[in-house]
């Protein structure tokens, strides 16, 4: 259980983070699914460093390896080769129990299809996590942060897609994660709803200072980030830093 590093102090979102310790330090990361002729290479040698407080966007077509990379960062999937460390801790070779601990204490996930538990209300979906987290905020507070203070006792089926996604975000942030990983959070939403969701993410990134990684295939969203990584065929083909983060409300697609 002590394999994961100690929690760092609060930090402010930084300008280009040169010369600091990265949160994620990744070198030559590969992931191959299956074996023999049927094998599929999802990641073919990825190098990157993500720093505290950054808002990162991973761009790429479907099948480019974005989700696989995100899952490896979040400890949902184990890499086939290369090194992957989180604050100096070798995440790539951690056992199941430490990975569970890592996900429970440090990582918040947001998925494209929200993945709420349908039989639990908004509050209960969030409370599910706050029950097991180390230093959670009250579920109500998390829901307020994403602007859902008035939908606390609704079931997922009674909410719109945007609302469900914001519940999912509240669930992810209620544990005060050090890392917030979002896989196509607006993928299933219309523009207007997508904007409200992104605003929520932006707001949380500023408020909590968590390293936030957002996967999208929508290049316009990249404008709101500190840095943009473009993936293709399991490799990073381009890295771009934004001088300033664009306001989410100014994004249009």
């Amino acid at each position: 259980m002590s394999a994961a590093p100690a929690s760092p102090g609060p930090s402010t979102p930084a300008a280009p983070p040169e010369g600091r310790e990265p949160v994620f330090h990744v070198r030559g990361l590969t992931k191959v699914y299956g074996t023999g002729e049927a094998s599929v290479t999802a990641l073919a040698g990825v190098d990157l460093d993500f720093f505290e407080g950054e808002l990162i966007v991973l761009l790429g077509a479907s099948g480019s390896g974005k989700s696989t990379l995100l899952n490896n960062l979040g400890g949902l999937d184990a890499p086939t080769g290369g090194s992957l460390s989180y604050r100096g801790w070798n995440l790539g070779e951690a056992d199941e129990e430490s990975l569970t601990r890592y996900r429970r204490d440090r990582v918040g996930f947001v998925f494209q299809f929200y993945n709420l538990i349908p039989s639990l209300t908004a509050r209960e979906n969030v409370a599910l996590i706050t029950e097991i987290a180390r230093d959670p905020m009250p579920p109500e507070e998390a829901l307020h942060l994403v602007g859902l203070g008035n939908r606390i006792d609704h079931f997922p089926a009674q909410m719109s897609g945007g609302e469900q996604q914001r519940v999912a975000i509240a669930r992810a942030i209620a544990k005060r994660p050090e890392v917030l990983l979002c896989d196509e959070p607006t993928g299933a939403l219309d523009v207007h709803t997508g904007i409200t969701v992104l605003e929520a993410l932006e707001h949380i990134n500023r408020e909590l200072g968590a390293l936030t990684v957002v996967i999208t295939h929508n290049a316009i969203i990249a404008g709101m980030s500190d840095r943009v990584f473009t993936l293709s065929d399991g490799r990073i083909v381009n890295v771009r830093a934004n001088a300033t983060r664009a306001a989410v409300s100014s994004l249009e697609w």
Partner: peptide, 16 residues
Amino acid sequence: RGQIAVLKACGFSNRQ
């Protein structure tokens, strides 16, 4: 299946 995955992603252990 999906819900189990979410629970695990959120840090629930296999035992739980």
